[in-house]
Simulated assay, not measured.
Amino acid sequence: MTIVELRQYTLHPGARDTLIELFEREFVTGQEAAGITVGARFRDLDDPDRFVWLRSFPDMAQRARALHVFYGGPVWQAHREEANATMADSDDVLLLSGPGFPAPSDAGPVVATLCHPTDPDAFAPHVERYVRGDLPPGTPRPQALHRTEHAENTYPTLPVRTGEDVLLWFTQGKTAPVAPDVVARHLKRAPQQLRLAPVHHIT
């Protein structure tokens, strides 16, 4: 397991493609050079002004070091004003423990399902049994199960969401199974599902 950030940016109207072009050209390799693993990047299919992406780190100490290197380094310093100009809000960030999620090889649609269980430890076995195991034949299988990481934020310059427990997984395809009643009764509210389109790598 690694430390994963799920980052959801609300952008100014019409600015998403500008940020994506900059991100793919400068920030993927720039972050990787600092020791950050950049995961999948997505356009939100239901919000034209939302950009969703993931990055991961071996542990919280390495997260602090890598973020310090990147945000203090030449790539971010050269392009931060251009990037920040596209963003209305960049603080919707979940700090998670899990395997991360790379960009799908076929670049097809993906659904991210976020659940807020009343008891995360009791809920995890239900996810394994009813969401991963007991699905009709041909139903897309959830992948990359993540849960909230409650460690102290080691890079407080960038805020993360606190005070909540989330279980999250990804499903490839335009739709994903909704949690059945036996799972839903363990949730504080209905699951949130993000319909996402992977960003194609710019060559």
Rank of each mutant, 00 (worst) to 15 (best):
W76Q: 00
A33N: 07
Y9E: 08
Y71S: 02
Q143R: 09
D134S: 08
L94A: 11
T175L: 14
P177R: 15
S56H: 05
H200S: 14
R25T: 15
D49G: 14
R55E: 01
G100F: 06
D134W: 12
P13W: 10
F70C: 03
F51I: 08
Q193G: 13
A78T: 13
A179Q: 15
L96Q: 02
E164T: 12
F27V: 12
A15M: 12
R147N: 03
L94E: 05
H79L: 02
Q192V: 15
P191S: 10
H201Y: 00
G73Y: 02
G14E: 07
V178K: 08
Q31C: 05
T157V: 12
L11M: 11
Q8H: 07
L19I: 06
N84L: 09
L95C: 04
L94I: 05
A103P: 02
F123G: 06
H126Y: 15
F23W: 12
D59N: 13
V38S: 00
Q172R: 15
K188E: 15
F170E: 08
R16Q: 09
R63G: 00
A15L: 03
P180G: 13
R16N: 06
D44S: 12
P177N: 08
R7P: 02
E24M: 11
P136T: 14
L6R: 05
A83R: 05
V4C: 03
R16P: 04
Q62D: 01
E81A: 14
H126Q: 08
H201A: 13
P198Q: 11
P136M: 13
R65D: 01
V166A: 06
I20S: 09
Q193E: 10
A112K: 02
T113I: 13
